[in-house]
Nucleic acid binder design. Structure first.
Lengths: 168, 168
DNA sequence: TGTTAATAGCTTATGACTGAGATATTAAGT
DNA sequence: ACTTAATATCTCAGTCATAAGCTATTAACA
């Protein structure tokens, strides 16, 4: 169980430049933290036979009310085809229904059915509790601090997407 | 473009309980921030015709040197079959090679070839720069703060996975 | 030594999701 | 009115990755 390294196998040194090294470290930590919490969230969701993406659609409709498919898409970060697919499946299960949009006949609303609403009312509290537990490594004040930092980080990263590869 | 809401369509109120509401908000912000940075990372990686998972393997080997496939798996958060698949493809491209492990004949090392090492030496600096730019919404001190918070968060969430659904 | 359990990696079946293009409808400009 | 562009959703082929089970090898223990 010991590594046999020939002289040429020496790993490359990380960047010496402090800002870049810090950003890379933050990236690793951020990705791992998100993955850990995702694991908790996913584990809870799968108990109910749903995929995370399906749950995301239900949760969005549960908290926002009926929404155009395009709005669902933006909020759940899923592709256009994926949204159609997800709503199809949730419709087959009786949790969601499509409704016509009177002012634009291309568009469709997605809305929870009474069954879908009842289902979410039943499972959401336990899900919220699972998330609360996953976050319990941080106290309330620390969580607020993290929210502020990550919101700033996210907004800037999001904005940078559009304006190509300029300097920052 | 106006929402037609029947009286039954009113969205559910978010949890009134402050710790739970805060944790849920943090979860949304965390997921979005991670997604935004991932988008930058992925965009840079795809310029070279690699998937993020492939790049993850190369990056791990680049910085850690030769590693058993199982160790690669743990570090890249990919399934066992996925690791086999990824190393297969990188081997076909000439970036990675498998080596026997003398002390355990079930095991295999994955190691960068000279070509793989040269490739990473060529593309990694620009990738690191892309990550630095994606993180530029936060100053150096803020990034360090975020690292501390997310590390704590991640460790606790990770630890909670094992010990079932006890209280925290 | 012989038997059982654990481990490393590979194979295969499966499935969720993406992305490009198709269709239907609306908006804009002439 | 007519043409062109933009928008909303849907269709579908292709892909990445997972999960369960398989083989080979090693470790544990009587």
């Amino acid at each position: 169980m010991k590594t046999t390294q020939s002289p040429t196998d020496q790993p490359a040194a990380p960047p010496a430049d402090v800002p870049t090294a810090t950003a890379l470290k933050l990236w690793v930590i951020l990705a791992r933290a998100a993955a850990s919490v995702t694991a908790h969230s996913t584990a809870d969701i799968e108990r109910h036979g749903l995929t995370p993406a399906e749950f995301g659609v239900l949760e969005t409709l549960y908290h926002k009310g009926p929404l155009l498919l395009g709005e669902v898409q933006k909020r759940t970060l899923v592709s256009s085809g994926g949204t159609t697919f997800l709503v199809d499946r949730l419709e087959k299960r009786g949790y969601v229904e499509r409704r016509l949009c009177e002012s634009d006949r291309r568009a469709r609303y997605a809305a929870l059915t009474p069954a879908g609403k009842a289902f979410m009312a039943e499972i959401f509290p336990a899900h919220a509790e699972a998330i609360r537990r996953a976050m319990s490594g941080l106290g309330l004040a620390q969580q607020r601090q993290a929210i502020d930092l990550l919101r700033t980080l996210g907004h800037e990263a999001e904005g940078l997407k559009d304006r190509g590869a300029e300097e920052g």
